[in-house]
């Protein structure tokens, strides 16, 4: 069996790549994809940590995360659509109405 720490390291790398993508990219679609990367990393930790205890509970928690991710994507993409209608752009820097 692969040690649990290996899974945690892969998960940390995935999460770090998600952070890098979320902060560096200005395309809001790619920013959402980076959030999905981070949520996947969290799921991996749930399942890996539960393997040596009660595996079914880890899977159940990961299922909840998947459901939250699905609703987040649905609302987020609707927001992107509304933004595109307003600005003709999905660049997150295009929205500066609240900037003083």
């Amino acid at each position: 069996m692969a040690p649990q720490s290996w899974y945690l390291i892969v998960s940390a790398l995935l999460f770090g790549l998600g952070i890098v993508g979320f902060v560096t990219r200005r395309n809001s679609l790619v920013m959402f994809m980076s959030v999905e990367l981070m949520l996947n990393a969290a799921n991996l930790v749930f399942v890996a940590a539960a393997r040596d205890h009660v595996p079914a509970r880890g899977s159940a928690c990961a299922l909840f995360v998947i459901a939250v991710a699905a609703s987040e994507v649905a609302v987020g993409l609707a927001l992107v659509l509304a933004l595109f209608r307003l600005k003709k752009s999905v660049d997150s820097d295009a929205v500066r109405e609240l900037r003083a």
């Binding site: 692969a2 899974y7 999905e36 399942v47 998947i66 699905a70 993409l77």
Partner: peptide, 26 residues
């Protein structure tokens, strides 16, 4: 990775929901 952890159900759901539904939405 879920499959190697013994969470076969979650692996299947990951493929169906993420690789299927969420990516189609994107």
């Amino acid at each position: 990775l879920f499959l190697t952890l013994g969470a076969g159900l979650l692996g299947a759901i990951q493929v169906m929901v993420y690789a299927g539904a969420i990516m189609v939405l994107f």
